[in-house]
Design a protein around this nucleic acid. Structure first.
Length: 430
RNA sequence: GUGGGCGUAGCUUAGCGGCUAAAGCGUCGCUCUGUGGCAGCGAAGACCGCGGGUUCGAAUCCCGUCGCUCACCCCA
């Protein structure tokens, strides 16, 4: 044994232990069902991409790229980055594989690990998992609405209630520059009432000031011009139609004129889905479970054709921890209704073949073949909640029989070994 | 990146300057050599997160560090 501290997971990274797997499987199952229904095909892109892909796609001044990406240099000198989100990689794949030649829209989904180097906190990790849906090739707000509807549906399917959808439009290259000017003009005389970060954002990304959590910034922004009032006709129309779709679908949304999101590539629609949680003192808090929006310029920016797109993602860990906290899902304990116990070398050897027979007959049988004493094996059978234990001992091997013990009653019966599958089936039906 | 709380068996915790670091749960075994649940007995399992300091003596006090956690920031 080497000296020094024992190895453990790096900061912000965690093992998904066996007892947590059912939660992940449950979420993945719902995601797949919804994806299949709405015609989304699965895509898996590499966890490493050219770092420039994210710098260009997400934006160099965003927090994600500025301080949260993991970089690594290959022996050839290329700079790669661990993906901090899905969209840029999927857009890259769309371009690389000529998906523009497929019937549009191209609907894709993905799930997997993402990496952001930031300080861990409740429901936030450095390696975390998301599921992500994207639609390429159509500009219709119906697509934005479908994405929102799907995420809402997935969360509802997972039994979440008190969900709130917040939507906003942040315009496009037509109207946003104009709004930015308006906003900066409003903010400039008030900049000394803003926090340090926001003063920096004035130059780089003034829209971000709108969702700053600092109280003083919130005071300033409350009187600020709102982007919806500055949208060009096209964006205004798009937004209006989106809201009509949401109304028709009975989705509970409300407008949040301050929602802008942390990535540069968004155009027009942005949204987040929140859930209400009870804090320790019973005060209501909301937690973002999913977020996304339209990104009509990203594909072109990454070197493809001018392809509009929209999409969103949600975080698995956060959902898992809420499923537990709100007890919305109870992992099924693995059901072994039958247990095979053996005694003696001959029986132990024979049980391997018998187990394989049971497997082929699709009977779920537990065993403890490493153990010798029948007592220990019955104890295990009991612990596993088996209804029947098959006992194969020296005597039975000689007679070509097997004992079926009904655990609850403690009664047992000897049957012919070749009939065991049939006999077990008969008893399980009752 | 900033600040608060916490690190003792697999888990939950006790011990808070002085015997061999303790208990419950869990694990394994025995009582019961081919019959489970209950009970009794026993065993294994702890570099007391790591490093340094103070002290005759440190799990206990001090400093540093790593990790967890909560809040801020940001977001999923």
């Amino acid at each position: 044994m080497p000296k020094g501290p024992r190895f453990q997971t790096p900061q912000g990274m965690h093992d998904v232990l066996p007892e947590d797997q059912p939660y992940i499987e449950r979420i993945s199952g719902v995601v797949k069902d919804v994806a299949d229904f709405y015609g989304y095909a699965r895509i898996d892109t590499p966890m490493l991409e050219d770092a420039a892909l994210f710098e260009k796609g997400i934006g160099v001044t965003t927090d994600i790229v500025e301080k949260q990406m993991y970089f690594l240099r290959t022996k050839g000198g290329d700079v790669l980055a661990m993906r901090p989100e899905f969209t840029a990689g999927i857009a890259r794949a769309y371009i690389q594989h000529g998906m523009i030649n497929l019937p549009q829209p191209v609907k894709l989904y993905s799930t997997g690990p993402l990496f952001r180097h930031e300080s861990p906190q409740a429901g936030r990790f450095r390696q975390f998992h998301q599921f992500d849906f994207e639609i390429f090739g159509e500009q219709s707000p119906a697509n934005d609405a479908q994405i929102i509807q799907m995420f809402y549906a997935i969360l509802r399917e997972l039994k979440f209630s008190h969900l709130i959808i917040e939507v906003n439009s942040i315009g496009d290259s037509q109207c946003r520059p104009y709004y930015k000017k308006l906003l900066v003009n409003y903010l400039r005389p008030r900049q000394y009432s803003l926090c340090v970060d926001c003063r920096r954002r004035m130059k780089e990304n003034p829209l971000r000031i709108l969702d700053c959590k600092e109280e003083k910034c919130q005071r300033v922004r409350s009187q600020a011009p709102q982007i919806i009032d500055s949208l060009c006709d096209e964006c205004k129309n798009h937004f209006k139609q989106l809201l009509e779709f949401l109304d028709e679908a009975d989705l509970p949304y409300h407008l949040n004129p301050h929602l802008v999101r942390g990535l540069d590539y968004y155009t027009k629609t942005v949204f987040e889905i929140f859930v209400e949680t009870e804090g320790d003192q019973g005060e209501g808090k909301t937690l973002a479970l999913a977020g996304g929006g339209r990104f009509d310029t990203l594909v072109k920016l990454l070197g493809g054709k001018d392809v509009p797109a929209t999409g969103a993602a949600a975080g698995m860990e956060r959902i898992v921890s809420l499923l537990k906290e709100k007890q919305l899902f109870t992992p099924p304990t693995p059901q072994y209704r039958i247990f095979l116990a053996q005694l003696g070398d001959a029986a132990k050897k024979k049980s391997a073949k018998l187990l394989e027979e049971m497997r082929k007959a699709k009977l779920n049988v537990a065993e403890s073949v490493g153990r010798d004493s029948l007592r220990a094996q019955l104890a295990r059978a009991d612990k596993l909640g088996a209804e029947f234990t098959l006992i194969l001992g020296q005597r039975e091997v000689l007679d070509n029989t097997i004992v079926i013990r009904e655990m609850a009653k403690g009664t047992q019966e000897t049957v012919k070994l070749e009939k065991v599958v049939e006999e077990v089936r008969k008893r399980l039906k009752k």
